[in-house]
């Protein structure tokens, strides 16, 4: 990966009528690095994530992915990216293989073999309906789909929320394996701070619609002598928003 930033957020704001949820946020994510976007509930993380994927247009400012405005060139840029949502976004009544077939026609870089192999390993049956899968299986299914197009950029929105230990382990194994194999650029949000502490290179903490903290994880921890969880708690003290 080049050191040129894969994702660049320039003064992005998101406003819903009177609500300013994200206020002039700027940050960069270098190629091959893992960026953790943290914040209390309702802090605006999901809105930012949607802006990163071209789903939503920031009220002001812009988001550049691979050097181009992602709102304007969404389709082209999404070919090189993948998204793991918090809850599986595939239509529930469809079968696993229908969803896989849909993805196959979407991506030129689709790796059918790897996807099959993963699904096998995760115990996800191809003929099962998506709604019939357990929560853990659904999360792994979503990950398998996301990794299927060999993305250069992977965006994850609280991927391990509500997963049991085994599912979470499976998730991280494949996730880290992918990082090792391909050096994917990753942006993720999470509440499982301990879980991602060893994985994130940089962290951004959204607090009061601003990016209250943005820096190298190791550096921050060394300077403050605190764990990531402690840093987070301190930065977001008393900021609980109504979600």
């Amino acid at each position: 990966m080049t050191s040129q930033s894969v994702v660049r957020v320039e003064n992005a704001s998101v406003r819903y009528n009177k609500d300013l949820v994200v206020d002039s946020v700027s940050f960069e994510v270098a190629g091959g690095s893992v960026f953790a976007l943290l914040g209390r509930n309702g802090a605006g993380k999901s809105s930012l994530i949607r802006c990163l994927l071209g789903l939503q247009r920031p009220t002001t400012g812009r988001v550049l992915v691979f050097g181009e405005d992602v709102w304007k060139h969404r389709a082209r840029l999404m070919a090189r990216s993948a998204y793991v949502p918090e809850a599986c976004d595939a239509p529930g009544q469809l079968r696993v293989r229908d969803i896989v077939a849909f993805h196959r026609s979407m991506y030129a870089t689709w790796n059918e073999g790897a996807v099959r192999e993963r699904l096998n390993r995760f115990g996800v049956s191809e003929s099962a309906a998506v709604s019939a899968l357990s929560k853990g299986q659904r999360a792994l299914f979503t990950l398998a789909l996301a990794l299927g197009n060999r993305p250069e950029l992977l965006v994850l929105d609280d991927p391990t929320l509500g997963l049991d230990v085994v599912a979470r382990n499976d998730f991280f194994s494949d996730f880290i394996g992918e990082l090792a194999d391909r050096g994917t650029t990753v942006i993720l949000t999470t509440h499982d701070l301990a879980g991602v502490e060893g994985i994130a290179d940089r962290v951004g903490i959204l607090q009061g619609a601003h990016l209250a903290l943005d820096g190298d994880v190791e550096q921050l921890k060394m300077e403050r002598g605190q764990s990531l969880e402690q840093i987070f708690t301190e930065v977001t003290k008393g900021s609980g928003r109504k979600s």
Binding site: F172, S173, I176, G177, L179, A180, G183, G198
Partner: peptide, 15 residues
Amino acid sequence: SVRDLATDLRINPAT
């Protein structure tokens, strides 16, 4: 390997 150790320890392979 970098991959195996990273997976085992659940840390970034780059690290």
